[in-house]
Amino acid sequence: MSVAELQELLAAHRPVTVLDVRSPADVDWEIPGAIQVDAYGDLQSGRLGRLAELNLPPGPVVTVCGVGRTAAIATHLLRANGVEALTLDGGMRSWSLAWNTTQTTISDCQVVQVRRTGKGCLSYIVESQSEAIVIDASVDPEVYVRLLSERGWRLVAVADTHIHADHLSRSRGLAHLEGAALLLPTQHRAQYPFRPVADGDRIVFGSTALVAMRTPGHTDESTTFLLDNTAAFTGDTLFLNSVGRPDLEGGTRQERTSRARLLHMSVSRLLQLPEATQVLPGHVSEAIPFDGRMLGTTVETIRDSVPLARLEEAAFVQAVLARIPPDPPNHLIIVQHNELGQFPVDPSELEAGANRCAVA
């Protein structure tokens, strides 16, 4: 079964059971609703093991592992026992490209959240009077083209909030495909043509505009895009229950400390927005279900529920630097691609795995 076929089944809420047979040590991301069974050792020995004990519901069973080989063994053995089993082609590596969407209205604008469920990346299409801007494109450009076409919207600009370290940006490819402006925060990292966006700049579309708010810390150029102070597209600076990490640009301990101070300043600045402002981040830290629910929160909720956001600068810096998670897989190579504007033929090998851009 292809990723697109499984994605379609889950989006349509049709009966399907996803059976994840990886060892627990190999599970850093999952498919929403998957049943996790540590069957790797048994399957490698040609046995179903614990899989034989499962009371599986009627309907197809899709087996999944890292790249598909062990899952194929499970499929063969399950079929021999009368189960309607199929293997997910390419396993979790290929699933990292899967996506779903939801849509809402904010300040008379339509906002489509394009959610890369296999990676946790969130991107956005923001529309006013049939003109649209895409923020942080992270799935195939053709996906956005199709979503825009279905709604009768015209793409006028594509914007990234920063140079990404966990996934390959699709923004340059999408802008080229649609003949739209490519916008990046002012910086000297990107080595290809783009329109620089500085603090306070307005990106006009339809009857409204996005306003750039420089929010450094995760990276020096990190920028939040504000929609009438009713929504903040925060990239990797502020998440639903955590903040960005300040270490992925490397450097000395002193340089990381300096960026953590900038991050505190940026988070504090964002939390001064009106309490009802919607915070729409660039990532979440878990698999995104096919439930149509917008992933966002309010400034007020973050103030009340995210302990890091309430700390004074010194305590914030100490806590953030003490809680740095492992680096995202292949992040140095991904950053290099994003700085050069390059895109590999098959991005799944570089991008597979958790995004790890947050500090909680």
Rank of each mutant, 00 (worst) to 15 (best):
P58V: 00
P60M: 11
V62C: 08
P60A: 08
A74I: 12
I73C: 01
N55L: 09
G68C: 00
I73M: 14
L77D: 11
N55S: 15
P57H: 12
E53N: 12
R79V: 08
G66K: 02
A74L: 04
G59Y: 11
T75A: 14
N55G: 07
A74D: 12
P60N: 00
R79Q: 14
G68F: 09
P60K: 15
A72P: 00
A80Q: 15
I73P: 04
G68S: 08
V67W: 10
V67Y: 11
V67G: 07
I73T: 15
I73Y: 09
A71Y: 05
N55K: 12
V61D: 07
R69Y: 08
N55P: 02
L56V: 04
A71T: 07
L54E: 07
R79A: 06
P57Q: 07
A80C: 03
G68Y: 10
T75M: 15
H76S: 12
L54N: 03
A52W: 03
T63G: 10
G59F: 11
G59R: 09
R69E: 11
V62K: 07
G66S: 03
P57F: 01
T70D: 01
V61C: 02
T63V: 01
T75I: 00
L54T: 05
L54D: 08
P60G: 01
R69N: 14
L77R: 06
V67L: 14
V61H: 07
L51K: 10
N55W: 03
T75F: 01
V61N: 03
L51N: 09
V64N: 01
G68D: 02
T70Q: 00
N81T: 06
R69W: 12
I73W: 08
H76Q: 15
H76G: 13
R79I: 00
P60Q: 15
A72S: 14
A52V: 02
A71G: 13
N81L: 00
T75R: 15
A52C: 06
L51Q: 11
A80S: 06
L54A: 02
T70M: 01
R69I: 10
N81R: 15
C65A: 03
E53M: 03
G66Y: 09
A80D: 15
G59S: 06
R69G: 07
N55D: 15
V61Y: 13
V64D: 01
L77Y: 12
L54C: 02
A80G: 14
A71N: 12
V62R: 05
A72K: 10
I73V: 15
A71Q: 14
P57M: 02
P60S: 06
R69F: 11
V62T: 09
P57G: 03
V64C: 02
A74N: 05
R79S: 09
V62A: 02
V61P: 06
T70E: 04
V62M: 00
T70F: 03
P57K: 10
T63F: 05
A72G: 12
R79P: 01
P58F: 00
L51H: 10
V64P: 05
L78F: 14
A80E: 15
V61I: 11
N55Q: 15
V61F: 11
T75Q: 15
L78S: 06
P58E: 13
P57D: 10
V64H: 10
G59L: 13
A80F: 07
V61T: 10
V64W: 04
L56D: 08
A74P: 07
L54S: 09
